[in-house]
Every structure is written in C-alpha cells, then in structure tokens.
C-alpha cells in the first residue's frame, strides 16, 4: 500500500498518497478541506460555470480510502463545504452518497472558516475534537502540541533529474501535523510561505502526496 508511517505525540499515524491521514490504532481516517460544492458556489456568485464534478470526484476518492482503511471514525477537518449554502445545495444523490459513507461510522465535521455553522447532514459538528494524545482542529494554534489541522492547503516542491514538481504535502514536526487539502478543486500554499515557516519547527518534514508519499525536509 502506498503510505508513509510516522508518530506524532506517541500516536502511530500513516499518511496516505491521496492526502488522507490514517490512525490505524483508532480506526480513524482524517481528511481536510474537502470544499464540497465549490463549483455551485462559484456559479452562484457569477464566477462562471465550472465543471460540476468536483464533489463526486472528492467523494469517490474518500470512498476508496475508506474501503482501503476500513476506518470506523471519519474526521473532516473543516472547510468540508465551500460555504454553508453550498452544503444545503448538494443534490439528493450526493447526500445519499455521504449518508452511505456515514452508515455504521462515527462521523465528525470540524468547523472551518468556510463552513462555520452546522449543516443538515448526519454526524456531529464540533469546533475541535480532542482525541488524546491528539487534538483535531481546522486552524493550527501556536503553542499547541499533538495537533492535527488543515486550512493552509500546504504544497511543496522537489527537483529531480532537472525538473521541479509541486505536490500537495503533509507538514510534520514534533508538535503538529498539517494536512494537505483533499478536495478536487483546491489550490495550495507553498511550504516556504511565511505563514507555514513561522508555524513549523526548523526540522519539519514535508510528506509529498502522489503514487508513493515521500518525506523531504520541508522546503523553506
């Protein structure tokens, strides 16, 4: 299986090549920044009619990761919906799909800046989820430890054989893990951005997503 295993605050975790985080000991799968309903929101605001397939593409990938990990708890780390209206506007098929994924599982929606209020979908809505030794929340807090967060959509570059590629990346140090965005229509912030270099310790790693997730010293 394509994964990268590491520990954070004593918890043994696995980064998947898809950008999801697996915590096998708790049978927990965590994904961040799904931004479901992005194309609907863009059109609503007059920004053009983007291909309306990002929600089914994102859910299809989540479906695969759940089948792969057999997780019984799912934590969506905030910005799961592009905004609360987008959450309400999801069609019946999509709702049924989400309901099917939720069946028999504990499902936690962490609130993000895009989706601060509760949505009318199964699962519990939390500001943050303490799961000692870890805490799951949307935006990282300075001084926290054992923290798993999202929000920044981190990405990192690597040059090999005369070519530079950019990939979505997990950022990891001894205090925290920042997840890459999982949603199909999401961009990224380079790990060298001040917002991220200020947050991560100097010895932080960037775990590049892709066929095979690979760690590199976090590019600054």
């Amino acid at each position: 299986m394509s994964h990268y295993a590491f520990t954070l605050a004593g918890a043994r975790l696995v980064a998947l090549g898809s950008g999801a985080l697996h915590w096998p000991d708790r049978r927990l799968l965590c994904v961040s920044d799904l931004h479901l309903g992005k194309s609907e929101r863009t059109a609503r605001r007059g920004g053009g009619t983007l291909p309306p397939y990002e929600t089914i593409d994102t859910l299809a990938r989540l479906d695969r990761d759940l089948a792969l990990t057999q997780a019984t708890t799912v934590v969506c780390l905030g910005d799961s919906f592009d905004d609360t209206e987008a959450a309400h506007a999801l069609d019946d098929k999509t709702r049924a799909w989400i309901a099917r994924l939720q069946a028999g599982r504990r499902w936690v929606w962490i609130e993000g800046n895009h989706d601060p209020g509760p949505v009318d979908m199964g699962g519990s809505h939390l500001n943050a989820l303490p799961a000692p030794p870890l805490t799951f929340r949307h935006i990282a807090r300075t001084g926290a430890s054992g923290e798993v967060s999202g929000h920044y959509h981190p990405k990192a570059r690597i040059s090999a054989g005369g070519r530079t590629v950019t990939r979505r990346a997990f950022l990891l140090d001894s205090d925290r893990l920042i997840l890459p965005a999982y949603g199909t229509y999401t961009g990224g912030l380079h790990s060298s951005d001040a917002a991220l270099t200020g947050l991560m310790r100097p010895e932080a790693l960037a775990i590049l997503t892709g066929e095979t997730p690979r760690p590199i010293p976090m590019p600054r």
Binding site: A160, R214, P215
Partner: peptide, 8 residues
C-alpha cells in the same frame, strides 16, 4: 520515479 526516489 526512480530518480525522484533517489533524490528524496
């Protein structure tokens, strides 16, 4: 992929 593996 072989080269990227070596570089990481």
């Amino acid at each position: 992929d072989r080269l990227e593996e070596e570089e990481t």
